[in-house]
Amino acid sequence: MRSRVWRSTTAVVPGGLLAAGCGSGAGETADTAEGKGDSAGRPVTVTDCAGAKTTFTTVPERIVTSNASTLELLLRLGAGDKVIGTGFPPGKGTLPGELDARAQQVKVLGETVIPKEKLLGSGADLYIDTFAAMNMGGGMGDAPTEEEFRAAGIKHTYLKSTACAAMSKAPVTDLSAVESDILSLGAVTGTTTRAKELVAGMKQKVDAVRKTVGDVPEGERPSYFLFDYDAGTKQPMAVCNRQIANAVITLAGARNVFADCDGDFKQVGWEDVIAKNPDWIQLGVRSRGSEAADDKAFDEAEDWLRSNPATKGLKAVEEGHFLRIGSERTTIAGVRNADAVEQIAKTLHPARTGRP
């Protein structure tokens, strides 16, 4: 559902970035600052799914991101100069083109989750979590409370499309929540014009795919399993119907074999995958930082499926129906979600999409 543009002195962003908590309704599209240019529409208020508000009277100048996905979005928006640190940094070569060089200049506050004291003492005025309730284990202490964030002068928000996914009331079948996150980030960081451009580019790609495969009947859609190789092979991690990947798969004209699972992720058994017997399997490895390293990881994932007694008889394995698409492009909010939709559709529906 698309929400109205609020005509008031405050630009209210009810979708998108989640402030201090999460709830349902992850599929709603955010409003943006009023269309009078990137400096208009102050203050900007972002709200979570339950209605809790965080207000920005000025553009944040010192932003810390929890991981590479939010960092990438800020770089694409042109707000990368405001990022003073990140956790889960992107490996060298992970991001495309010029974004990679700029990402490598951002200070790494934690190779994984940023330690609590380092985050609170970072000097940030905004911390953006990609996921809700990150556990700062491993001897790094507990996650800061909202009171501790306030005491440190840090506003704490999340990417709603991932943080609230598990609590969405309905299956996620489009990218409106991702688009909402981008528009909200644009409103907060004063880059509304660029945010609208990014969303328009995504819509153009997805709309083109819809025109070619959107009318494929449910029963004729190839079944599809995203194999998260890096999540472990003992028990596969399935993407459920509230996860962004479900939208990517659906928009591409396929059927997520675990679309009957309410939530974002769920550990399943290989017997469950065997029962589904997917037509296609995505080798969803996480970026290793270079094309050669990624290819090696894709090879490893494919070899494991081909050699494992429990999986080598799967239809997709026997027919060599593998897609080499990184996990991040499919499961975490970003501009490249639209690229994944396009790539999957061209692979699964070559006759419709004109792929040779």
Rank of each mutant, 00 (worst) to 15 (best):
V285S: 05
V248T: 07
A275W: 00
A297G: 10
Q267Y: 04
A238I: 12
F258T: 11
A301P: 03
A231S: 08
D228P: 00
I249A: 06
A310G: 08
L305Y: 00
E291S: 06
D228F: 00
D228K: 02
G232Q: 11
G289D: 05
V257C: 15
A247S: 09
T250N: 14
Q243M: 11
G284R: 12
K276Q: 15
F227E: 05
A275K: 12
A292Q: 09
D303S: 08
K296N: 12
Q267R: 11
F227A: 08
F258D: 12
L283Y: 05
V273T: 06
P236V: 06
R242E: 08
L305W: 00
R288C: 04
D230E: 04
N246D: 10
A231D: 09
V248N: 02
D230S: 00
A252K: 02
D303G: 04
A247C: 06
F265E: 08
D228W: 00
T311H: 02
G284F: 12
D272F: 04
A247Q: 07
R306T: 00
E271F: 13
W280I: 13
Q282H: 07
G253H: 08
D264W: 02
G232F: 07
A238M: 11
G263H: 04
D272W: 02
W304S: 04
D303I: 01
N308Q: 15
A301D: 09
A245S: 13
T311N: 03
N246Q: 10
V285K: 09
I274L: 12
D260V: 03
D264S: 13
M237L: 13
A245W: 11
A293P: 03
I249D: 05
D279P: 00
V268W: 05
V257A: 15
V273I: 08
R288A: 13
R255L: 07
F265I: 10
A293F: 02
A292R: 05
I281V: 05
S290M: 10
A310E: 14
I274D: 07
D279G: 00
E300S: 08
E291V: 07
D262K: 09
K234W: 01
D303V: 02
A238F: 11
K276P: 11
D295N: 10
G269F: 06
C261P: 05
K266E: 07
A301V: 04
G253L: 10
A254V: 01
D272I: 04
T250K: 12
D279Y: 02
A275R: 09
E302V: 07
A275L: 05
R242N: 15
S287C: 10
D272G: 09
L305D: 00
R286M: 11
N241K: 15
G263F: 00
C240A: 13
A293E: 10
C240I: 14
G269H: 08
I281D: 01
W280Y: 11
C240N: 12
